[in-house]
Write a protein that binds this DNA or RNA. Structure first.
Lengths: 202, 202
DNA sequence: TGACAAACGGGGTGCCCCTCCATATCTTGG
DNA sequence: CCAAGATATGGAGGGGCACCCCGTTTGTCA
């Protein structure tokens, strides 16, 4: 988890040894710097801390988004793993809600993550980026929850994640970000109207 | 509404004529530029388009936030007016929801507004800024809705506006921003769980 | 109308993103 | 083991932006 694993899956040609070393250094520096300053951290500062020239950084990561994507890859993967675990739960409705809260907390406490997820193609993230990973992992949870009748059928994972991400984005950097995020997500999940005499999942 | 009205309420000394002219020009240019490029519009470009030096802009508006606050003042005031009208509705629950949707649409379609509202002091905006204005105006609606039993009593206006703002922020700039915003806000208001046989407001 | 407060804006500083290209470093076939 | 060629590097430079200093101009009012 703390180990930076390696370059992307199948680079047609393996990177030269020194190139790969720099790649990893940049990623490590970026992780630290983004944690400190958020998604707009200075790329030059990252290069400086990694001990490489700024050109090297730009060669490895053509866009800021590409860098962030890689920085957060492991953390997003962890969230996906959690989704897969929760998919085995015998209360699919609660499983989905639990996961959404977890995503919100992660996003609210991990500086830059939410912003990074919003950077890609407008909203339905397309490729194999972090957005799509979450979308896929969560999709399964949503399907099950809907199957169990715990969630309205017209709900989509895109909407849910957009909402959760919006909350993360807005609570990021606040003192008690995690609490705030959980509270807002819970509000959105439960709605603002009073529960009928006995709620569906009370 | 389209007229830029004047300098803030009570500047202890009235501005000199040329100063006031520049103030208004800057505000107009800022409105245009922010509409084009969002809350991060270049301040130098704004000064350029207003035909003033950048120092003049900084003298009138010490921070970006101060400028945005003034740019959006009228539009926020309009939303507050709408809130006051809606406060007379005989269905306080629906009135609140209607207003929240309106705020979301406004925020999603007015580039920079949502970002500007999030810039101030973390979340419970304090002073007499746009955030507080909305908070006050909406507070009345919320109180009535809660009085009518249409909204859970522990809900706060700060949370509601934060949520709505988050949605605006995230949908800003998307093609069908208004639709998207309304859909997400509605989702958050209604919650994700299926309605019981007959919903409270069906 | 003249003197003084008020306002102005050019230009400087420091930071940032991104690219070019002369140089240095790895890798591999002989 | 070594050279030739492919790869990778990073300093320097172009273009922008935010913000401030301070000599100059412009209203204002007695």
């Amino acid at each position: 988890m703390t180990e930076i694993s390696a370059a992307p899956a199948a680079p047609v040609r393996p990177l030269r040894a020194d190139a790969r070393r720099n790649y990893d250094r940049i990623l490590a520096a970026a992780g630290a710097e983004v944690a400190r300053s958020g998604a707009n951290a200075s790329l030059e500062e990252i290069a400086r801390q990694a001990g490489v020239g700024s050109a090297t950084l730009h060669r490895h990561f053509p866009t800021r988004q590409a860098l962030l994507e890689e920085v957060f890859h492991d953390r997003v993967e962890a969230l996906c793993a959690q989704a897969r675990e929760l998919a085995a739960s015998d209360d699919p409705g609660e499983a989905l809600v639990t996961w959404l809260r977890a995503v919100a907390v992660y996003g609210a406490t991990t500086r830059g993550l939410a912003a990074s997820l919003m950077m890609g193609p407008p909203h339905p993230p397309s490729g194999a980026g972090c957005g799509s990973m979450l979308l896929d992992a969560g999709g399964e949870l949503l399907r099950r929850a809907q199957g169990a009748g715990a969630v309205r059928p017209e709900t989509t994972m895109v909407d849910l994640l957009t909402l959760v991400n919006a909350v993360s984005l807005v609570t990021e950097g606040v003192a008690d970000a995690a609490d705030e995020a959980v509270r807002l997500v819970s509000l959105a999940i439960d709605g603002v109207r009073p529960l009928p005499v006995s709620g569906p999942a009370a």
